[in-house]
Design a binder for these strands. Structure first.
Lengths: 184, 184
DNA sequence: ACGGTAGGCGAACGATCGTTCGTGAGTCAA
DNA sequence: TTGACTCACGAACGATCGTTCGCCTACCGT
């Protein structure tokens, strides 16, 4: 058996690079080093650096939405699980790939730009679907606001290592599904 | 009189570039083109690309805090003005320079990284000082949360052009200084 | 046994990056 | 008038970028 580098592995390492260094800052050579290949070999699997963006975000969305509790029977559980996953990623990785790419891709890489837009729209729609199952009013708007608050909190993690704003954002997010939780 | 390009002009254009393209994406050649110089001429005024970050953020902080109402006599006015300025910038420019740089600078440019950290700490402290004058509890924490929410809302502006999350964040921010404003 | 295919690499392409050097023209104080 | 200083540029440096080409080798179906 010949030892081969899996696509999953490449995408996972690309995600780390995009998250830490952004689209422009991440180089194909760095990525190749991480997976133990030469840069040219990456082009056997991916047509371009730009196409990696779509693959990275697809994997990230899958990770976030995999095996969630069924909103129809346990929407609160689905909400808590999803919020928890997002928050945990931000806490351990210190930033969000999606946000870095959202700021990092330009009109010069239109496919990457579209992939980023689609990623956030789908994530928001998934969140809104959960809230809708719980008959929360204005689910799309609440989902967008919630996601924005979680993303914004990563600012303090990267600059100061301060996790408090993220925790506050999580508390507010959970209160959406549990309004009578803790008033103070 | 010899026609000369002002430092202020260079920094202002650098700010646009950093905001739109990030630290790595902005090139000294692009900046030179914008101000009508050759790239080498920029080094008469700035020692390096990295040093531009500090200058850009210093100017941005000055713009935000210039001529605010005195918190000691009108803390609500100071708060409203500051929030309004930040929100207006996000709305017209579609993103935040600080956030793009926060994600974009790495340990390879330590001085830039420090400048970013200092920028946000000073902005938060200025906000906290206003809230403190209004005897709002936990001013530093509330200031950090408020700033995070405004920053996070820029995600939807860049990806979708959707201003609603920003407006919601502004409403929540203003409610800090006016809790009895609008309950719904 | 054999042909096709997939995965990988050496070499190298043109482009662009931040930056340095040497030079010259304009400006101002003495 | 002179000397120092400021501002700008032409030319070019080495480094790094994404990517392409040609070739080799190991595997798989037949």
């Amino acid at each position: 058996m010949r030892e081969t580098v899996s696509i999953h592995r490449i995408v996972a390492e690309a995600r780390e690079l995009f998250r830490d260094r952004g689209y422009e800052g991440a180089s194909m050579r760095d990525l190749a080093d991480r997976v133990g290949l030469r840069p040219q070999s990456l082009y056997t699997r991916f047509a371009s650096k730009e196409s990696l963006v779509r693959a990275v975000l697809a994997m990230t969305l899958d990770d976030a939405l995999a095996d969630l509790p069924d909103p129809a029977t346990d929407w609160r559980g689905a909400w808590r699980t999803l919020i928890g996953r997002i928050a945990k990623t931000f806490e351990t990785r210190e930033r969000c790939v999606g946000l870095h790419l959202a700021y990092g891709v330009t009109a010069r890489t239109p496919d990457a730009q579209d992939a980023v837009r689609a990623f956030f729209v789908r994530l928001r729609d998934a969140m809104a679907g959960i809230l809708d199952a719980g008959k929360v009013s204005e689910p799309a708007s609440v989902a967008a606001d919630t996601l924005a608050q979680l993303e914004g909190a990563t600012l303090w993690i990267t600059t100061e290592g301060n996790m408090a704003p993220l925790r506050h954002a999580v508390e507010r997010a959970l209160r959406v599904a549990d309004p009578e939780g803790k008033p103070a």
